[in-house]
Write a protein that binds this DNA or RNA. Structure first.
Lengths: 216, 216
DNA sequence: CAGGAAAAATGCGTGCGCGCAAGTTTGCGT
DNA sequence: ACGCAAACTTGCGCGCACGCATTTTTCCTG
């Protein structure tokens, strides 16, 4: 495992090349002015090979921003000392990994905002945090709570998705939101960190209860 | 609203015709022996009109089973007396709507199990319960908890999805699950009701806390 | 280091999702 | 009753996702 083998290295190199090519072309021309054929050609690979790596055209562009955020979040949770509340560990790790963003990623996010299909792909990508997150949570809860860990991880993913949805829509028709939230106070779309913490807060009691069940 | 107008009635009739045609054809031949062209023809409509109603071919088949389960769940929650715990109301409503299944629906589920694409579409359909569920939960929590309601509803949807995933895989390679749950006790895939209750149980503390915050 | 097995890349063909620009039906006001 | 506007349907075309069979590359073992 020290050397993943040339096989795996070339594989990751190709994936990286596709990522970068997709993002670059999407920035240069419009996002819909680029076909998979162009991306494949820019990466020096056949179009058929392209969707051996990415199921949809949008995934390639989005994955340039998403990268391996899933593993980073899981690692960040694992890095917290075991003394702190699990809920805090998860919340802080998520906020940290979503706000510590480079300049290049921020520009790419602006691009994503413009296209509905890209936004959807970006939101769908959040579901990918569930498996690694479930693993680290299960590690803290012990084997008995493996099932609970899975549910909690999925809930976190859902909450993050909601936070992102609420965040990347500054340009929304005001009347379109009047379906049922006409009662008045809708969150005025604060910073991303605020949105994430607000979305994750309701889940904290569930984490506390799960944690209490294994460490009384 | 008494008479939805002939426009809307024909629309629902077409949707129903497509649903039934898709399910019938999928049962008669194999699920992959049926093209959208066939379904559209059986429903007396153009193929292009077909995906004015359904985004994917699988959605039509699945929707014959799913129907309007979303609204039924929301209605079932609203029907519970306001005295009971919100967590119990939601859990019972979900279990009730997923287990009170007719004979025809059960046969269709067996069909869905066979095809991976159909299973995925079926699982994706569970996300549809979020909006109506968020509405009824928000109604109980008051306008201040609208945001919390959204998160809780999404968590419920995620939990239900996990329960369904665990339920409809009796035919899984034993070693395929050995990725990280090698610790030993994996749930032996009990009844659907058990799976649903087990998946929703970890969320109960979150519901209790949210409820407590509005009615001290 | 040679050769064979495993894995990945590629070509090809099919069906599908969807935008666009007509044509057709429904509903509503006068 | 009539006609107009909005909603729905339909034909057309393009690009894409993916299964299958073949070729090329990587890896391991004797």
């Amino acid at each position: 495992m020290t050397t993943p083998g040339l096989r795996e290295r070339k594989k990751q190199a190709t994936r990286e090349a596709l990522r970068e090519a997709a993002l670059r072309l999407a920035v240069e021309r419009g996002p819909d002015r680029v076909r998979v054929e162009d991306i494949a050609e820019a990466a020096g690979v056949s179009p058929r090979t392209y969707n051996n790596y990415f199921a949809s055209r949008e995934q390639a562009i989005v994955s340039a921003v998403t990268a391996d955020r899933e593993e980073r979040i899981a690692a960040a949770v694992a890095a917290r000392p075991s003394g702190v509340r699990l809920a805090d560990a998860v919340t802080d790790a998520v906020v940290e990994q979503y706000t510590n963003t480079g300049e290049r990623e921020h520009k790419a996010l602006l691009l994503i905002t413009t296209q509905t299909a890209l936004r959807d792909a970006f939101l769908d990508a959040t579901a990918g945090i569930e498996p690694p997150l479930a693993a680290v949570i299960a590690e803290r809860l012990g084997d008995a709570g493996a099932h609970t860990a899975r549910v909690l991880a999925a809930s976190v993913a859902a909450a993050v998705r909601i936070a992102l949805e609420g965040w990347l829509r500054p340009t929304e028709d005001a009347d379109a939101a009047g379906s049922f939230a006409a009662g008045g106070l809708v969150v005025p779309s604060g910073s991303l960190a605020d949105q994430l913490r607000a979305a994750l807060a309701p889940l904290a009691p569930a984490f506390d209860a799960a944690e209490r069940r294994t460490q009384p």
